[in-house]
Design a protein around this nucleic acid. Sequence first.
DNA 1: AGCACA
Length: 283
Amino acid sequence: MSHPPAYDAFYLAAHAQPADYADSSEERSGINTLFISGLPDDVKAREIHNLFRRRPGFASCQLKYTGRGNQVVAFATFSDHRSAMASLHALNGVKFDPQTGSTLHVELARSNSRRNPKRAGGPYVVIDKRVKSSDAKDRVGGFSDEEGSDENRFSVSGDTDSEGGASNKRCMLYIHSRMPLWDCKLTMLLLMLQARDGACSTLFIANLGPNCTDEELRDLLSQCRGFNSLKLRSSGGMPVAFADFERVEHATMAMDALQGISISSSDRGGMHIEYARSKMRKP
DNA sequence: AGCACA
């Protein structure tokens, strides 16, 4: 009896919805906004404002709770690039909190803040992406949340890979030390359920052994939620299979759970599973 | 790398 392997959380190369990343070749000299990290997680918007308000060319600033653990970052916008650079050099590496010894890391932001402090109201803006723990419970449903160890886990990064000019955007998870466990799980769940390129609710299964049977595959697949039907075919003398699921998300989870596993008839390594090119017609 | 059934 083969069991689906544990989810490979450490390197999840999911073809997730592309986060919008600024092209690295973008003109940097038009950037008037600074990105500030290295802040203690109890920093107040007022402190950020006080840090920047007297600097030449200062326009506005905002504090952002990123929602990744307790991570806090800030943005400060200036009237022009030169004054932004001046403040960057003045404040980068400065000790912010003598208690913790935390040091500011200041760099040019990826893009200018388009937030208008006058319209947004108040001298500084707070963006709070933190998820309330009550919704988090609702969102993750059956997941148990061993809270005690908030020693941290993963976060998501975007990356553009332009092999063959195809420019596939993908997301990956990497270990990161300030994220509570529930947040990691939520992130993983969302990534798993993200629409991936070419996603289809039917899966194409190849690299099966010549003696693979319908029953053997069906036994395995019927343990997967949303499994509808299976068709074994032969392609070039070798068996391939099509497995249909209720929804794309079910197919995605089955693929992630079963990818690469060997079954008793396997004689050439584990199964190769992809989305089928087209949805299976009615059974 | 191998993708059918209408």
